[in-house]
Write a protein that binds this DNA or RNA. Structure first.
Length: 274
DNA sequence: AACGCGCCCTGTCCGC
DNA sequence: TGCGGACAGGGCGCGT
């Protein structure tokens, strides 16, 4: 579910609440959300007596830096939420998969209805390795149009699929891939290596703009997404193409179409994204 | 070896 | 009202 803007919103919320907090323990009611090889006992032992030093984001992952240098990394999957339990509606969470108890009496809750989310634990070396597997951060200044163009030249896969691959660019999911391609006037099925320099410039600009707009709106809530306080994001009404099949294109009025590419929906205007 | 597919899960909605 | 099928923001393992 949550893509870069949603993960970023959660990180900003939790960064105001967690750093400095000592952790007393962890409970994992649904251990299947733990990464392969990680047990609840190992996680509990790692966090007990430790403390949250910082909360960061890498792609769609929420990264909790601990006082001893290790990191708890949460991938939210489709329905994952990270909420501190002093938030107004924290008691409405019905699928708490993991709970980190803090010394001040609060708890950090990981709630995940579908349990596609994952919690992993990394020491500094392992994290460095994992970090290298993830692609470039699209909002970094090092991510330029030229860089995007170069990256696309090696792949014939449809550009929508290309954008979803976290090893190339980290943080883009199906909503913002579709939105960026609409803004850039590029058809989602276009092979990545057929983009010319001008299209790369447009896609680069569109991608960064839509990610920034969505962060400003605190993310897109279609159904499940909530921020670190349990509140919905406000970007959904500003989606121009995602989920809007059958409705008029906001640019030309032609009817928006939906198709399926690699088992996932794509939305596009055949006139604007020919 | 890059790529597409099925699958992991629960919930909701829609048509019959 | 009930029931089956489609669909949902992600990502992994597999086969080709």
């Amino acid at each position: 579910m949550p893509e870069l803007p949603e993960a970023e919103t959660i990180v900003r919320d939790l960064r105001r609440r967690l750093p400095g907090s000592r952790i007393t323990g962890a409970r994992v009611p649904f251990p299947d959300i733990l990464a392969p090889g990680l047990t609840a006992a190992t996680l509990r032992k790692a966090v007990a007596g430790n403390a949250f030093v910082d909360v960061q984001r890498r792609g769609k992952n929420v990264v909790f830096l601990l006082a001893d240098g290790r990191r708890i990394v949460v991938n939210l999957g489709m329905t994952g939420r990270l909420v501190v339990d002093d938030a107004p509606r924290a008691d409405e969470l019905r699928h708490v998969a993991a709970r980190f108890a803090l010394a001040d009496g609060r708890s950090l809750l990981f709630d995940d209805t579908r349990r596609f989310g994952r919690i992993d634990l990394y020491d500094p070396t392992a994290w460095k390795r994992r970090d290298r597997e993830l692609g470039i951060e699209p909002l970094r200044t090092s991510f330029t149009a030229a860089r995007l163009h170069t990256l696309t030249t090696t792949s014939r896969t449809p550009i929508r699929n290309w954008l979803l691959d976290q090893r190339r660019i980290a943080g883009v999911g199906n909503i913002y891939a579709n939105e960026a391609l609409f803004r850039a006037r590029i058809h989602p099925a276009r092979p990545a290596n057929t983009l010319d320099a001008d299209e790369a410039v447009r896609l680069h600009r569109a991608l960064r703009a839509v990610l920034r707009d969505a962060i400003r709106a605190r993310g897109t809530t279609l159904r499940d997404y909530r921020d670190g306080s349990g509140e919905a994001g406000t970007f959904e009404p500003r989606l121009r193409i995602y989920g809007r099949d059958g409705r008029p294109c906001p640019r030309c009025g032609h009817t928006i179409e939906r198709a399926v590419l690699s088992n996932r929906s794509v939305f596009f205007c055949t006139t604007c994204q020919g």
